[in-house]
Design a protein around this nucleic acid. Structure first.
Lengths: 189, 189
DNA sequence: GTGATTTATTGACTATTGTCAATCTTTTTG
DNA sequence: CAAAAAGATTGACAATAGTCAATAAATCAC
């Protein structure tokens, strides 16, 4: 099993050697280039991704070519185009790796296998889901209660990594504002 | 067991009479008056609510008295101030019932009990969580990609109940816009 | 039912943010 | 390293949405 995944499971799951092997076999390693697209909008997201190195960006594009970042996934975290993955419907969002990345890829079928076979896996998965859901609730809150400056400040406090590592354009569309507005926010303090 | 709850579990869970009794005992009936507050901001949300009749509103208030609706829960659905409930931290949000309501209330401890004792309960709970998470992702999408008119139209399509049943003020702060803007959107088609 | 209270609408004005365009800077890639 | 591409900044203007205030309408509570 990849050490990064092992660390991720540390403390959350006690595994027999056999079960550990099963998990290791379900997660397939994949390397991506900078800006490589993993899931095209309109296709079905068939995998869950664990980011070993680099990051993933789940984003939306409209007919005018505008992009909006729905979600960012950094080292040690899992994610995908979740609605498509769960509902098995064509995805509204695409996924790309803004940085060249190393991923561990879990198929839907293998996720189900692990949920069924590994004692404690569903509880761990469910707990992770709760935390992801909480994060999305907090993002909704920031969108409905704050102006763009306040949202930027919160992002700076809670996920400075996003601001440091990713281009302004992505930071801006993650915040739901234009690149120019972000640029002005940054200069005005 | 309350017939509304029974219907909610229908097809999702096969229960022995014994397990059915256990579930019935964990959910306590509560009636609320119009605008009654169930959870005060700053307190810990210790319960999960199943709405039999009426509805619940999870909302935020700022220092100027502005309110924002984070979440609305109608008949046949469950919810609470989720981050507080899970993390056991003081809630940023309050909960009230905008209509006089009938609820089935499940404590955190009883939720854990059911998760442990009832076979299939965790899977059902997890699946429900996935769907709630998807709904929140879609709400984020509408907030970062659409203007207020488009968001209103989507709400009209997907949850017309919210618009029909609740006062404009609540609809507006659910959409993250001012009451006046909503009023103008409605008149301009 | 009726007065009182809450809610909704409308107007005038302001503030915030978006768009378009030009320029400057940084990064990438061969 | 250099040319090319991508990203960032800034200005001018437009559009969207917010605020404040007055009035109208609807709803509640007695």
């Amino acid at each position: 099993m990849h050490p990064a995944l092992k660390q991720h499971l540390e403390g959350k799951l006690i595994l027999s050697p056999e079960h550990e092997r099963l998990i290791a076999n379900c997660f397939k390693t994949r390397f991506t280039k900078r800006n490589e697209v993993l899931v095209e909008k309109g296709s079905i997201a068939k995998h869950l991704y664990f980011v070993v190195k680099g990051c993933l960006r789940v984003f939306l594009t409209d007919n005018d070519g505008n992009e909006s970042t729905r979600f960012l996934i950094f080292e040690g975290r899992m994610g995908t185009a979740f609605p498509s993955f769960i509902l098995k419907e064509p995805s509204v969002a695409s996924i790309q790796s803004p940085e060249s990345s190393e991923l561990l890829v879990l198929s839907y079928a293998d996720r189900d296998l692990l949920l069924q076979e590994i004692p404690g896996f569903e509880t761990m998965y469910r707990t992770g889901l709760e935390l992801d859901y909480i994060a999305s609730i907090q993002r909704i809150e920031s969108l409905i209660t704050m102006d763009s400056k306040a949202r930027y400040n919160i992002l700076m406090q809670t996920q400075p990594e996003i601001i440091k590592r990713l281009p302004n354009k992505i930071v801006a569309d993650y915040l739901g504002i234009s690149q120019e507005t972000l640029s002005r926010l940054k200069s005005k303090k």
